[in-house]
Design a protein around this nucleic acid. Structure first.
Lengths: 322, 322
DNA sequence: TTGAAAGCGTTACCAA
DNA sequence: TTGGTAACGCTTTCAA
């Protein structure tokens, strides 16, 4: 492995000049540049990135913190890796499994300059712990952080939920139930608000019994259908927290010989591949766009350029379950 | 940000001693260690990883090369990130999208010492190009590479396929069709061999018409069912290249009012979450185990310790489609 | 346009 | 047990 020093000696020029060639400095004569480049090629020279990182104080790496990896996160990650790679940044994964200590490692790595920036998908440490690391580098988050120094690319779920709801109402459904996730989450609160406002707008009843909470996945969705099957006045439509829940609801509804969408309409959320496959009406969540925006939020600090975020919006994807 | 040098000055000891404290060297008196540790805590000192990397010539990072990110790869990745993290290594993702140039970047990063090792999930560059990088660091592969310097954790698909086939035959199915992926792939060849040998063993006909190839995903699976619906003697069972294909086959079969599994048995491959959700009989592919083995194959070069690989095997998961 | 030399923050070897 | 100092391989400032 040849080094810059060797190239300098072989070429007869100084290290500084060789370095200039590497960094495309204009202050090198054409002949000198060519001569040095030729020697580099000859000796199969590659600069050592560690040395560059140490010298520049940057690693061109961004850490991505997530609780675990699932289909949704995959989509986000794919898009983020793509755009950050385009600007010369690589992505390191920190899957924490919800372990605070493990998660802290990522923040320590920002402090230790192993990564230049941090992207939080989901974080479990206390907000004040997290924000105490802001001084070591830019941090951006998918999940809402409510802190001026940690901007978020989260979208207001109100709009997406309203879209789904208006669609159901237009189709004539009246007994519309909600399958919410974590009741205390901001997302759930926005959705609930949308539900209340839109239902009221159309003079439809807002009943407590149509709020189901802590519904997260397929099994929960299946369970949910079983729950209301015996009831006197079951819902005729279900708005699901995500597509997985919708899959569960659909699969159990079929098992119970319900006619979807006549007896029961189902709307998912996110427009994952699965919803597409199974023909579930859903709300398209522009996740790839959010990932790009996440990088663009880091761009000022990283690249020194202020880039405009792209405007994003939810969209209704009509399929066979409504 | 304090540095080792400052800690040395503040403590009155040399840099060497401070370094020894950092690296848990036994050659430091207890008092000295405590004194230095106290100062480190006081000044909120963290060692700079770039400096360590440069000095040691290692980054504690492993690059993972993949064409794209899907559910299967997610599973592999999850497991690999977990075990490598356990040994102090981080994982960097290189999604190539099949672009040779982009993929080469990962190999260059091995050469530039940005990563200490490389894990290939799928690679598209020529074998001799890839192997030319072996001298720069250990490389391990998921996909079979057929090169002594690049060991693979791929499993022989013969065994898994045989398992599925024996199961179908035992259940009384006779007209068993294959939905293969890429016809030239080693996996397909192994599966084909298994098919021929097992069918012959039970004196069942091996007919050319029951080899379908280039069946990769859900749509292909749906299409496949349509193809043979008009035929005089359609298959009564289908062995699918993967679970996605099985999902497509199942969904189209239901649409065609076929009784699964009476009219048509379906077996998937991999035991993905999806197959579990939809109740598809499948072959459990120990992917997480393969990922762990991948790291263990790197361990000798990385950690200097020879670790024994765990033995892995396929398993039949019986569900409602057979 | 070029060069000398001082960083960057550690580790590791050789002495003491 | 400790210290001095030369690596590690590049960037950057200041002079020429």
């Amino acid at each position: 492995m040849s080094t810059l020093d060797e190239i300098a000696k072989l070429s007869g020029f100084s290290k500084a000049t060789v370095s200039r060639v590497l960094n495309d400095s204009p202050h090198v004569s054409k002949e000198t540049r060519e001569k040095i480049l030729a020697i580099m090629k000859e000796t199969d020279y590659v600069p050592n990135r560690n040395a560059i990182s140490l010298s520049k104080g940057q690693t061109q790496q961004i850490g991505m913190i997530t609780l675990d990896l699932n289909e949704l996160i995959l989509c986000f990650m794919n898009s983020f890796v793509e755009i950050s790679g385009h600007y010369g940044y690589q992505t390191i994964i920190y899957t924490t499994g919800g372990d605070k200590q493990k998660e802290l490692q990522a923040f320590e790595d920002l402090k230790q300059k192993r990564v230049d920036a941090l992207l939080i998908l989901t974080a479990v440490n206390d907000k004040h712990v997290i924000t105490s690391y802001c001084k070591y580098g830019p941090i951006v988050s998918w999940q809402r952080m409510d802190h001026p120094e940690i901007p978020s690319v989260a979208m207001n779920q109100y709009d997406g939920y309203a879209l789904a709801l208006e669609h159901l109402i237009e189709r004539g459904y009246k007994r519309i139930a909600n399958a919410f996730g974590r009741p205390s989450s901001i997302n759930t609160q926005s959705r609930r608000l949308a539900y209340e406002q839109i239902m009221s707008k159309y003079n439809l009843p807002v009943l407590e019994k149509w709020y189901y909470t802590t519904i997260y996945g397929i099994q929960d969705g299946e369970q949910l259908v079983k729950t209301f099957m015996g009831q006197p006045e079951p819902p005729d439509a279900i708005l699901c927290a995500n597509d997985l829940v919708a899959v569960g609801v659909l699969s159990e509804a079929r098992r119970q010989k319900l006619d979807v969408p006549r007896d029961l309409a189902i709307v998912g959320f996110d427009n994952s591949k699965l919803s597409q496959t199974l023909g579930i009406t859903t709300i398209q969540n522009p996740i790839a766009g959010q990932a790009e925006n996440a990088f663009l939020l880091l761009a000022p600090a990283l690249l020194g350029l202020d880039m405009e975020l792209q405007p994003l919006s939810f969209q209704l994807i009509e399929r066979e379950t409504t």
